[in-house]
Design a protein around this nucleic acid. Structure first.
Lengths: 223, 223
DNA sequence: TTAAATATAATAGTATTACTATCATAACTG
DNA sequence: CAGTTATGATAGTAATACTATTATATTTAA
C-alpha cells in the first residue's frame, strides 16, 4: 500500500501538515468535523479539543480556517487531476480523454488507500457543500495572486486544452470546463437538498444520470 | 413613474420592510453596504449606524442577516421573473421564449425606475458574489421547507417547462436551467476575479459573449 | 551526552459578532 | 385622548477568531 503525498502550494500552510503527527491529525479530524458540522460551525477550538491539542498549536499549521479549507480543496483537485491522468495516460484521442475524465468527475468517491489520513468520501462531501466558499470571499484576489487556486485552475486548463484539440473553433473552452466542474458538484447538492432544481435523482443511478447530463452539455457544445 | 412592489414569501421577514420608512431604509442601505463590504463583513450593527437606527430595531424586521440576504435575492429572482414575462408575453414559440429569456439572464442590470429604494446594479453584484451563500448553509433544508427559495425555483420551473415544450425527450430540463442560471453569475464572477477559469472577458462585449456561451449550451443540448 | 533549538501545551486575554432583554418614548389609530 | 404599536437607548451574553506569554517536552547537532 503505497503512501503518496501531493506537493501543494506552500503558501497554503505555515507548517506542512503532512510531515508531523499533529499535522496529520489536523487534516484527518478536520475533514471529519467539517463534513459533520459544516464549515461555518467548525472551529479550531472544537478541532483542538477532539485531537487533544490546543488552538494555538493549530494556528502554527494554518493561518486561519479559511486557509485550511483552501488546503483541503486544493488537495482534492490535485487528487482529481492525478486520477484523470491515470485514466487518460494511454489515450491519444482528446475526445476519448474528455469522456474518460467526465467519468472521474461525475464519480462518487470511494476511499483511496493510497492516501492515509484523508477520508476521500467525507472530503468529496465537503467539496460539494463548501467548494464555492473558497473563492466567494473578500480574499479572492489576494488568494489568487498567491496561487492558492492553482490546482483547480490547472485542471481546468488541461481539460480546456483537450476541448480546443477536439474543436479549435469553439471559443468558450475555459468557460465550458469550469462550468462542467462546478455543475458536477452543484447538481449533487441540489439532488440532496433542492431536488426541484435538478433532474438528477438521489438513487444509485444518479452517477450515471450526472455523467450523461455533463456529456450532453460538453459534447453537443463542441462537436 | 409607477412604483411596483413584489409580494414575497412572508416568512422571509418578521415585519414587511416595504411598508415603512425604516424598512425601506434597511433594504436600500443594506444593498449598498453588502455590495461595498461583502456579506461576511456586513453586520446589523454597522447598518444601524448608517441609517441612524439600532440593531434591535433591525432585528424586528429580519430574524438575522441570512434572512435579509434571502429576502434580497428572492426580490432579485422575482424581478428577473417579471422581466422575463415582459419579453416573452407576446411570444408563442417556446424556443423564442427561451432565447428572449437568455438575453435577460445574461444582461448586465440597469436601474429599474419602477422600484424605489432598490439599486438594481448593486443588487446584481450582490447576486453574482453572494447567491450561493443563500443555500450553502446548515439551514438549507429548513429554509427550503419554508419556501424561501420559491422565487428561484419557480423561475427555474418555468424555463424548464419551455425546454420540455421544445424537446419533450430531453430528460435534464431542470438541471439544464439551474445550471444556466447559476453559470450566468459564476462566469461573471470569474471574469472579474479568476479570469483563467472563463472565456468571458471584462470588456463591454462580455454580455454578448456570455449570451452566446449560454445559448450554445442550452440549444445544442436540447435541439 | 549535553546544550541548544524547536515544537507543543497550558493558559490568558481581546475585539468583534450575533444575538436577547428591558424600558422609555414617540407616533399613529380608533 | 386613550391605547396600541413602533422605535430608540442601553445593557448584557456566549461564541468566535484570533494573539501573546510562558512552561515543558522532544528533537537535533556539537
Amino acid at each position: 500500500m503505497p503512501n503518496l503525498l501531493f506537493k501543494l502550494n506552500e503558501r497554503l500552510y505555515l507548517r506542512d501538515p503532512q510531515h508531523t503527527l499533529l499535522g496529520q491529525n489536523i487534516i484527518r479530524v478536520s475533514i471529519d468535523m467539517i463534513d459533520r458540522l459544516g464549515f461555518e460551525q467548525f472551529t479550531f477550538k472544537k478541532l483542538a479539543e477532539e485531537i487533544d491539542s490546543t488552538e494555538a498549536s493549530i494556528y502554527r499549521y494554518f493561518e486561519n480556517k479559511h486557509r485550511l479549507l483552501l488546503y483541503l480543496i486544493a488537495w482534492y483537485w490535485n487528487w482529481m487531476d492525478y486520477r484523470i491522468d491515470l485514466v487518460t495516460i494511454g489515450l491519444t484521442n482528446p475526445q476519448e480523454k474528455l469522456r474518460a475524465s467526465l467519468k472521474v468527475i461525475a464519480e462518487e468517491k470511494k476511499i483511496d488507500p493510497n492516501f492515509e489520513f484523508v477520508n476521500e468520501e467525507a472530503l468529496y462531501r465537503i467539496v460539494v457543500a463548501e467548494l464555492d466558499k473558497t473563492f466567494l470571499t473578500k480574499w479572492v484576489d489576494n488568494d489568487n495572486k498567491e496561487g492558492l487556486f492553482g490546482g483547480f485552475k490547472s485542471l481546468c486548463r488541461k481539460l480546456a486544452g483537450w476541448v480546443t484539440e477536439v474543436n479549435p473553433d469553439y471559443p468558450y473552452a475555459n468557460s465550458l470546463m469550469s462550468t462542467i466542474l462546478l455543475t458536477a458538484k452543484q447538481q449533487v447538492f441540489f439532488a440532496q437538498h433542492l431536488p426541484s432544481l435538478t433532474s438528477i435523482t438521489k438513487k444509485e443511478t444518479s452517477q450515471v444520470e450526472l455523467e450523461y447530463f455533463l456529456e450532453t452539455i460538453l459534447f453537443k457544445s463542441i462537436l
